[in-house]
Design a protein around this nucleic acid. Structure first.
Lengths: 245, 245
DNA sequence: CTAATAGTGTCTGTAAGACAATATTTT
DNA sequence: AAAATATTGTCTTACAGACACTATTAG
């Protein structure tokens, strides 16, 4: 913090160029096998009527993480079973036309959820499939892009996929998460063996589903999340030549 | 940004609880085969005389990335050949005793460098070996921990190690970077073959060093960084059982 | 019955790591 | 000559992906 001391010694908050800090949350869930993101419709200018990521100003005395969780809860009512983690921060001087705003973005994952409630201050709130997004306000399209990249990468080396499913789940359900987030079909047999071979990824409950799948097939065994924080070896995505150079 | 609109509609900057945004830079280099981090000695309270990460307030109209690059240049004079990227943000309400400060941390990598210059506002500046750190001001120890975790992870799947060496380099020099950052010895033969087998990691210059090593050995071939942005397959660290659970 | 799905077996190619061997250079 | 280092070779084991197969369940 070079410069901070002298700066602050003679510092008067009233003179300081005003900067505001917000949190923006990229909340993801899976609906009908498709990855969805929570968006809110802005009720006021700028960008009135435009869809945006849920978020808002941090409050005095409130930590960044708590602010993100609060903003998310205001739109969805979801508090439990939600994984939330910080992503990048955005501070381009002109990213908000009103004033200097630095936004800290967060990524949240939740299992299948009921409809979101529009927060007290948003005109509406809805889950959008990530392949059918409306035009977004501010630089939120870029924030969302970064968030999706991160989510896809984290599925590879963390057990994050289990945050998208219920307390207990089948290997097929887990595969559905990977397919939805990565957007590619995976080989059922190989995926099955792979998941069970990673220590601590899932552990058996000893139970099975009550019945087979809707279109036939045997009952599936049920698992719960294991105690691993990192997957080793990782579940790597199929070849991505394009991204290498 | 739910809540933002109404909030700002009736918003007067003079009434807003003051928040300041700083950038803090974790600048890493390798000196004598050991990973070092750039620290500055604070000249003013709080934490006067304590060492801290270089950093400071963002200026009006200045992007976060530019602010980080500027702060780094003020302490080191280094502008070229420096890789810089954003890490996490820290906003605990009490992390600075003076006022609410949200800090955006940055990670910077540079090749072997001359001594740093104390910036205009710091009492002193120096490179510290990461295993012999002084007690740090604020929450900078935590920020540094996170930065080192990130740097170690990025060596695995990006060609970042090449940012620590010169324009051209030998495979041994590159191995020295990995050993310094990861803190473990690597097998010379296997490392050599591995690096050359990853497409786009390094490319041959056709040249060799002028002479052998200081303690003997043949001349080594010289390489330069290739065009890969991601290493595939990655160079994984040796087993890290501890970190898995 | 037929189709779909869960789960297992097998084979192949790639890659990581242990270890050895050879060539080249400094002291 | 002796020691250090660059580079290459070989072998073993692990693992990813392709593919085949069996068993179980819905319709």
């Amino acid at each position: 913090m070079s410069g901070e001391s002298e700066y602050l010694a003679a510092y008067d908050p009233r003179e300081f160029p005003p900067v505001a800090v917000t949190v923006d949350v990229v909340a993801l869930t899976i609906l009908g096998g498709v990855l969805h993101v929570l968006l809110v419709e802005r009720g006021e200018p700028p960008f009135a009527g435009r869809w945006a990521l849920p978020g808002g100003f941090i409050r005095p005395g409130e930590d960044l993480d708590r602010a993100a969780a609060r903003e998310l809860a205001e739109e969805t009512g979801m508090a439990d079973r939600v994984h939330i983690e910080q992503l990048a921060s955005y501070g381009a001087p002109d990213r908000d036309p009103r004033m200097r705003i630095v936004s800290v973005s967060y990524l949240a994952f939740a299992p299948d959820l009921p409809d979101p409630q529009a927060g007290s201050d948003a005109a509406d709130a809805a889950w959008y499939g990530v392949d059918h997004l409306p035009e977004l306000a501010f630089d939120h399209a870029r924030i969302l892009d970064h968030a999706l990249d991160r989510a896809r990468a984290k599925l590879e080396y963390t057990p994050l996929a289990t945050a998208f499913v219920g307390e207990t789940f089948t290997i097929s359900e887990l595969r559905g998460v990977y397919e939805a987030v990565w957007g590619v079909p995976l080989h059922a047999g190989n995926f099955h063996r792979k998941v069970l071979s990673v220590p601590g990824f899932v552990e058996s409950t000893g139970e099975t589903t009550e019945s087979g799948g809707p279109r036939g097939g045997p009952r599936a065994r049920l698992y719960r999340a294991g105690d691993a924080r990192l997957l080793h070896p990782a579940l790597l995505r199929p070849e991505r030549e394009e991204e290498v150079r």
